[in-house]
């Protein structure tokens, strides 16, 4: 809970601050942020189409094996995304966890910011949460499948040069998908390694795409500015005891352990 502050009161009552920011809603902003990150990675990175055609064209072994591993990668990406959908559902106030329903009951919902929720929801009359409650579940549609493909391509990009899942990899995946089971990341890493091993040398170069390296190399404002992290401890009560009111009640405080 926020501590009471002078500046909070001036913001609320002073009529001199941006009133639009008074009720900043943090619920769901991480979900929106993940979508932006995912879109950005998709726009800049490796596409599923490029990945699958390259791999199928250059794969040394039986295409059926390659196809199977590509499918496995898609399936793993879907597992990771499904976790995100549940998380997203909880963030925008839909019920959690989901329950399975038939397609007849499916009703698409929208987020408060107008973006379509990637989960599909139901209004099951027998729902334990009561009439009108929405339950999230993962049902693949065409649009959503393209998102899974983008996720699978991203997993391939992350794991193509490594055989282990490091903390940095996990953070990268979490930034895009949100919390996910670590077993899914390990599985995606194994599948990617298997696919890479079936490819001839230098194929990976064909799968490398432009990144935002240029931006990362730029100098950052403030790098040369002095900055002090140290914060001063305020004086202790005994140093300020001269601020007492000696005519007042000077009795010792009563202590009890009942709180």
């Amino acid at each position: 809970m926020a501590l009471p502050r002078l500046t909070g009161a001036i913001r609320a009552f002073g009529n001199i601050a941006d009133s639009e920011l008074l009720e900043a809603d943090v619920s769901g902003d991480i979900g929106r942020k993940r979508r932006v990150c995912a879109d950005e990675e998709s726009a800049q990175g490796l596409t599923w189409k490029h990945l699958s055609t390259t791999v199928l064209r250059l794969g040394e072994k039986d295409n059926q094996v390659v196809t199977k591993e590509l499918r496995n990668l898609i399936s793993t990406a879907r597992d990771i995304e499904a976790q995100t959908v549940l998380k997203l559902g909880a963030e925008i106030g839909l019920c959690f966890p989901y329950h399975i329903i038939t397609s007849v009951q499916i009703d698409k919902q929208r987020c408060s910011d107008g973006a379509t929720v990637r989960a599909l929801c139901c209004k099951s009359p027998g729902c334990e949460f009561g009439s009108g409650s929405f339950h999230c579940l993962w049902v693949g549609t065409e649009t959503e499948f393209s998102e899974v493909e983008a996720g699978a391509a991203l997993l391939f990009s992350i794991f193509k040069d490594t055989e282990t899942v490091t903390k940095a990899h996990s953070l990268h995946i979490q930034r895009i998908f949100g919390p996910f089971p670590s077993s899914a990341a390990t599985k995606a890493c194994k599948i990617t390694n298997h696919i890479v091993n079936m490819l001839p040398d230098k194929t990976l170069e064909l799968l490398n795409v432009n990144s935002s390296a240029n931006e990362d190399d730029r100098a950052e404002f403030g790098e040369n500015l002095h900055f002090s992290q140290r914060r001063v401890e305020p004086p202790r009560e005994d140093e300020l005891s001269w601020l007492d009111f000696p005519n007042g009640d000077n009795s010792e405080p009563l202590f009890s352990m009942k709180y």
Binding site: F245, G248, D249, E252, P253, F255, S256, M257, K258, Y259
Partner: peptide
Amino acid sequence: IGVMKEREWSCN
């Protein structure tokens, strides 16, 4: 300050 001394506190 007066009330601080009158109130009961869970610990010092």
